[in-house]
Write a protein that binds this DNA or RNA. Structure first.
Length: 422
RNA sequence: GUGGCUGUAGCUCAGUGGUAGAGCACUGGAUUGUGGCUCCAGGUGUCGCGGGUUCGAUCCCCGUCAGUCACCCCA
């Protein structure tokens, strides 16, 4: 009986995890630079939390959650990070500690979907939550932060789309206007869209079905019914984006699948790299009513989530250079113990060391040192032990020299630092 | 959840109704302690798994699992 990883869940092995680490480090740097602190919340939450925040009618809650039961309580693996963070925010009475809170997170999310390129059942998101600022400036700042981050990684073909759903009242009004337009034309819509008419008509706006697109093309735009503060907020966002010089596209058809969004909605896509049809890198928006609906303070909030797997696909197969390292080749019994202590001493001064203690001929040890890409190989045999020295071979430079044992650490460090750039 | 395609060595893939190959990688060796090139040798395998047809299936059929692409949805 052999076990395999579950469908849509992947093992990440050394060789691949380096790219993840580099990306995560870059993300952390960006977030810290903007005053965000890392929050870590459980992967398992009460199922009801997602029903109440992500939304009963959302596809995610309806059929994509991994659910389990424990002691009569219904639990779910988190399908996204925002609800858990909101729960933590409320539970910690965070709003009483500071007027504005900026949190970021990185971690696995779970959705029971059919996997395909750029979409897995366990996937990873990096995201943030900003609580306590209702103005459009922070919206633009957040989008700007993302653009800086992504272009800093080398992504060029970014498509930034923004939209506004307005507040609850304009949303309801728009919904009615949309229904008034769509219902007489329902026969021209796809079966899917016809079902949507009842539960979530706004979702018809981003249908890919050509029939729906044709109908939707002349539908009333939500931007036309935006009024008062909602309109001022959206215009403020656009002005701020222009001030930052961020190219963006207003897309009235942009409707994300989470129920809690209000006002600002945004999405960043990339046409670069090996992304398939799953080319949305980042999705985000404002959810001003969520904290209150979860029993917390009536505070505005905005956030985004970025798909790490997708970002890695977009970035392509860039190799992360391996740090320079040292290989120790002990020849013979006596040399083994000397190799072991030498390795320890080198590591104490920060040198990456691989000790091959399997024995074998010097030839095979050297071959192995080469294949591992070691910069330096230390040869230890009877001849060296007798003279109290170590043979230091610089593999790339094809040089070798005997160095007294008590000078080896310093010698190796200097040699590794010298040609640091490869 | 739906549909198309795929599933052979660690990797990339050939292949035939009669019980398996190449390249790369890996390991060892080429006069006793000197690598990356060359040469030689060698593991490399339940031919995804389970049934069925057949004298006999890796090859044909069915199911299943996994991957992949698309839909749906989303990061």
């Amino acid at each position: 009986m052999q076990f395999r990883a579950l469908k849509g869940m992947n093992d990440l092995l050394p060789g691949e995890t380096e790219r993840w680490q580099r990306l995560e480090a870059a993300f952390r740097r960006t977030m810290e630079l903007h005053g965000y602190g890392e929050v870590r919340t459980p992967v398992l939450e009460p199922l009801e939390l997602f029903v109440r925040s992500t939304g009963e009618t959302s596809e995610i809650v309806e059929k994509q959650m991994f659910e389990l039961e424990r002691g009569g309580e219904r639990l779910a693996l988190r399908p996204e990070g925002t609800p858990g963070a909101a729960r933590a925010f409320i539970g910690a009475n965070q709003h009483a500690r500071e007027p504005v809170t900026r949190w970021y997170y990185i971690g696995p999310m779970f959705r029971a979907e059919q996997p395909q390129r750029g979409r897995y059942r366990q996937f990873h998101q990096a995201g943030c939550e900003l609580y306590g600022d209702a103005g459009p400036i922070v919206d633009a700042e957040m989008i700007g932060m993302l653009v800086e981050f992504l272009s800093g990684l080398g992504l060029e073909k970014l498509d930034v789309a923004v939209n506004s759903l307005g507040g609850p009242t304009t949303r309801t009004r728009y919904r009615e206007a949309l229904l008034a337009y769509l219902e007489p034309r329902s026969s021209q819509l796809s079966e899917h869209a016809q079902r949507r008419l009842r539960d979530n008509p706004l979702r018809i706006l981003d249908s890919k079905d050509p029939r729906d697109r044709a109908v939707v093309a002349d539908a009333p735009s939500i931007l036309d019914v935006l009024e008062g503060d909602d309109r001022a907020h959206f215009e403020g966002l656009c002005r701020a984006l222009e001030a930052l010089g961020i190219p963006y596209r207003v897309d009235p058809g942009l409707v994300r699948g989470l129920d809690y969004y209000t006002r600002t909605l945004f999405e960043i896509q990339s046409t670069q790299g090996e992304l398939g049809s799953q080319n949305t890198l980042v999705g985000g928006g404002r959810y001003d009513g969520m904290l209150k609906s979860l029993g917390g303070p009536d505070l505005p909030a905005i956030g985004f989530a970025l798909g790490i797997e997708r970002l890695l696909l977009a970035l392509g197969d860039t190799q992360v250079p391996r740090p320079r390292r040292c290989f120790i080749a002990p020849v013979g019994e006596r040399a083994m113990l000397e190799g072991l202590t030498l390795a320890r001493d080198l590591r104490r001064s920060g040198v990456i060391v691989e000790l091959d203690a399997r024995g074998g001929s010097l030839k095979s040890l050297l071959r192995r040192a080469s294949n591992l890409g070691s910069t330096i190989c230390l040869v230890l045999g009877d001849a060296e032990l007798d003279r109290g020295v170590v043979q230091v071979k610089e593999l790339e430079r094809h040089t070798q020299a005997d160095v007294p044992r008590d000078q080896v650490v310093e010698h190796v460090r200097a040699a590794l630092e010298n040609g640091a750039e490869r």
